[in-house]
């Protein structure tokens, strides 16, 4: 069954949602084919923002740094519950459009899922700068991609049109936030739902498909 997922590498709930979806799919027993799509949460973020995620959010939203830090700590604890090790002190806040272009380059090479995982880990756990070509090429290499082809694609913005097409599709679907999961092109599941919600949705849609055969 085809699952189309809209997400952004800088979205903490998207990595958590990825884990919960994977567990839900496992529980359902429904074979899935996953494809990631682009959704830029903050396209006006500079590539080289100077400061921490806490400082960025506090400055941008005019909230006390302590309040932002408490929120990030809560997200960190929720991530830990699904065995993810977020380290917001190391996160390099940046523009993610190039990371989205990398995900499309990875799809062209048949290794998009490995690349999505490497990008999320790099951003939330390893403090890597996912807004720069050199770092993205390094991540691509770790995900098993042809790094020469990736570098060329990123430097020429070969896949920027594909990023924009994904975002247009998100608008057409009415997607306003991420992660967002489209099941079989007909059903939508929004947010980092519990695994049982994903499992139930997959089972329901699979049963519907079976009943119309």
């Amino acid at each position: 069954m085809k699952i189309d997922i809209w997400s952004d590498v800088a979205c903490p709930w998207c990595f958590i949602g990825k884990r919960k979806f994977e567990e839900g799919a496992r529980r359902s027993g429904v074979p899935v084919e996953v494809e990631y799509h682009s959704f830029e949460l903050s396209p006006d973020t500079p590539v080289d923002f100077e400061g921490s995620t806490t400082e960025y959010l506090a400055e941008r939203k005019g909230l006390p740094a302590g309040q932002v830090a408490a929120m990030l700590q809560q997200v960190t604890e929720i991530a830990a519950a699904v065995d993810l090790h977020y380290d917001f002190d190391r996160v390099v806040h940046t523009n993610t459009v190039l990371a989205h272009e990398l995900l499309h380059a990875a799809k062209a090479q048949g290794r998009q899922l490995e690349t999505a995982e490497a990008l999320f880990r790099g951003y939330f756990e390893q403090g890597r700068h996912v807004g720069r070509v050199d770092e993205l090429v390094s991540i691509a290499g770790e995900a098993g991609l042809d790094t020469v082809a990736v570098r060329t694609a990123l430097e020429t913005h070969e896949f920027l049109g594909a990023v924009h097409a994904d975002q247009a599709q998100a608008v057409a679907y009415g997607i306003r936030g991420v992660p967002f999961f489209v099941i079989d092109g007909r059903y939508g599941v929004s947010g980092a739902q519990d695994p049982d919600v994903f499992a139930g949705a997959l089972t329901q849609v699979a049963a519907e498909r079976e009943s119309v055969r």
Binding site: H37, L57, M71, G177, Y187, G191, Q204
Partner: peptide, 22 residues
């Protein structure tokens, strides 16, 4: 993919990010 048919939403509200709001 390219489609514009409305999606049927499954599941209740769950945490996610909308703009800078998480």
């Amino acid at each position: 993919m390219s489609a514009s048919a409305p999606l049927t939403l499954l599941g209740a509200g769950a945490p996610g990010c909308d703009g800078d709001a998480c």
